[in-house]
Design a protein around this nucleic acid. Structure first.
Lengths: 144, 144
DNA sequence: CCTTGATCTAGAGTCCGCTCTAGATCCTAG
DNA sequence: CTAGGATCTAGAGCGGACTCTAGATCAAGG
């Protein structure tokens, strides 16, 4: 029942990473694995724990919006081995800047939406039928 | 020089909203304006200040990841006039939940990336050639 | 009047990130 | 041995959000 799990089938990796088997094969075609995936005698993919771990990183970075192309570049650097940490760092730092900017943008939006939601709620509570965003009346933005 | 600006050309609106003129026409086709855009005698679009303001809202909501389809729904509700604030509220609140979740996810990612960046920097500073994500050695994640 | 640039419409094309299909092969339980 | 499910490859298809093209029209300056 419990295997050694020195390797994993594509289905197991899918279950562990949340990626679909289709996506896993696609990622491989896009060269974003750090090395060629092993194969069983029968030709099936046999992922190692390292592969799975790398894929977990990929998932995390994708979740924060890193494009596959960047992941591919990063994988290429890792594949080439030590000595290019500076380049890897650049990719990560640039991505970090984007993530921070995205967080700021989202927080701005959150403020706007919360304000809108508040106004709608107040209007509903007051039984007022005069909505915001009434194109015939105009509308004030939040006091920022 | 300075016009009345009771209306705006599509180019002016593009400049003001950051959307391309193509995108503006596309948005119109997707029915996400709160009313039909006026036209000049010559057939050109003449946006009102209200249109522009609505488009600003759209941009904000898009920036926070609201799909065009939701914007279209919202526009339809606004177009129908007062009386459906509850439905508008639902759309906004659902979006707000997504935005909050997205902020949380991004902050998690930020922590991970910052940690990675730190480790790379340390390694570079130390002159160490042994990189993280060395597929031949395995790699520990951050202590979460 | 004429040129130049902005705008018009309809529809095709692009990019991203998958997702799905078809037809073949492999593996495991009964 | 057989049936069923998981996997394989190559390649087509898709949804979202634009972006671009072609060919025509409109508008303002010289």
């Amino acid at each position: 029942m419990a295997q050694q799990h020195d390797t994993f089938t594509i289905g197991e990796v899918a279950a562990r990473t949340g990626l679909s088997v289709h996506a896993l094969r696609y990622y491989e075609r896009q060269d974003l694995l750090v090395g060629p995936v092993g194969r069983t005698s029968g030709g099936r993919r046999a992922y190692t724990a390292v592969d799975v771990e790398w894929l977990h990183h990929c998932v995390k970075l994708r979740e924060s919006g890193m494009p596959l192309a960047d992941l591919t570049r990063l994988a290429a650097l890792v594949r080439r081995g030590p000595g290019n940490e500076g380049e890897r760092l650049e990719i990560l730092e640039e991505h970090l800047r984007r993530v921070k900017a995205q967080i700021r943008a989202l927080e701005d939006s959150r403020a706007l939406i919360e304000w809108k939601v508040d106004v709608y709620s107040d209007q509903l509570r007051a039984g007022s039928a005069v909505g915001l965003w009434d194109p015939t009346r105009g509308d004030d933005g939040p006091p920022d």
